[in-house]
Amino acid sequence: MSAHASYYVPAQSRWPILASVAMFLLAFGAATLVNAITAESGTGVGLMMVLAGALMLGLILVGWFGNVIHESRAGLYNEQMDRSFRWGMSWFIFSEVMFFAAFFGALFYVRTLAVPWLGGEGERGVSQMLWPGFTAEWPLVNPPDAEKFPGPHALVDPWHIPLLNTILLVSSSFTVTLSHHALLRDDRAAIVRWLGLTVLLGIVFLGFQAYEYIHAYTELGLTLHAGVYGATFFILTGFHGLHVTLGTFMLIVILLRVLKGHFDPAHHFGFEAVTWYWHFVDVVWIGLFLFVYVI
C-alpha cells in the first residue's frame, strides 16, 4: 500500500512530552513569578522558569512544525489528512472565539447590568448604601471607590488611532486574501509582495497599539487600576494584541516558507490556516472597535 492511499499515523515522537515539560515550566514559573511580584520579593526563580519554558516551547514548536512540514513535503499526507488539519484549525479558532466571548460577555454584563445596579437602578439598591454618591455611567470614569480605583480623566478617542488601526487591519485582511489568490495562480512574486505587506500592516498595527497603551497610561490615566472600564479595555485589547502578535509570527513563518519555495496551488493548507487565523483576528478587532471604543 502506498503512503498516499493510507492515513499517515506518525511514529513515536519526543515533541509532545517535551512540550508538556515546557508548559509545566511556563505555568509553574509564571505563578511563582507573579506571586513574587505581588509580594515584592524579587523575580528570581519564577522568571528563570518562565524564560526556560518559553525558550523550550519555542524550540519545540520549530522542531515539531518542522517535522510536519517535512512530512507534508515528502507527500505523506493525503486528502483525508488535509481534512483533519482543516477540522483541527476550524475548531481551534472556534475555541479562540469562545475565549473572547467570555470577555465580551463580561463587558456587556458590567455595562448593561452591574454598573446600573451599582447606581441604584431597579430593586438592587444595596450598593447605593455603600457608595451613596455614585452615579452609573458608561464609560465608567468615576468608579464607586475613587481612592482604590481612580478612574481615567480622559478616554481614547475612537476616531484617531483606533480608526486608523481598523483601517490597517481590515486592509491587511484584503492583502492576505490577494496573496492567497496569487498563490492560487502561482504568481510567486505577488504572493511575497502581498504577504510582506500584510506582515507590515500587522506590525504597524502593533506599533500604534503600543503607542496607544503608553498614551493611555501616561496621559489619560486609563490603567488596569482605573476601575472596571480600564479592566475590560485592557483585557480585550490586550488579548487581541497578543493574538495579532501571534498571527504576525505565523504570517512571517509562511512568508519564509514561500520564499523557500514551499506551497503550490493545490497544496497549501499551512498557508490557508494562517489566513483563517488572520481573518479571525480581524473580525475580533471589529467587535472591539465597536463595543470597546465607539459605542
Binding site: 476601575g227 472596571v228 485592557f234 483585557i235
Partner: peptide, 22 residues
C-alpha cells in the same frame, strides 16, 4: 489578584456576581 483590575470588585464598578455568571 495581581494586576489591580476590578472585574469582580464592586468598588471599581465590577461585580462578584459576574464571576458566578462566567
Amino acid at each position: 489578584i495581581h494586576f489591580g483590575t476590578s472585574f469582580f470588585n464592586a468598588a471599581g464598578g465590577g461585580d462578584p456576581v459576574l464571576f458566578q455568571h462566567v
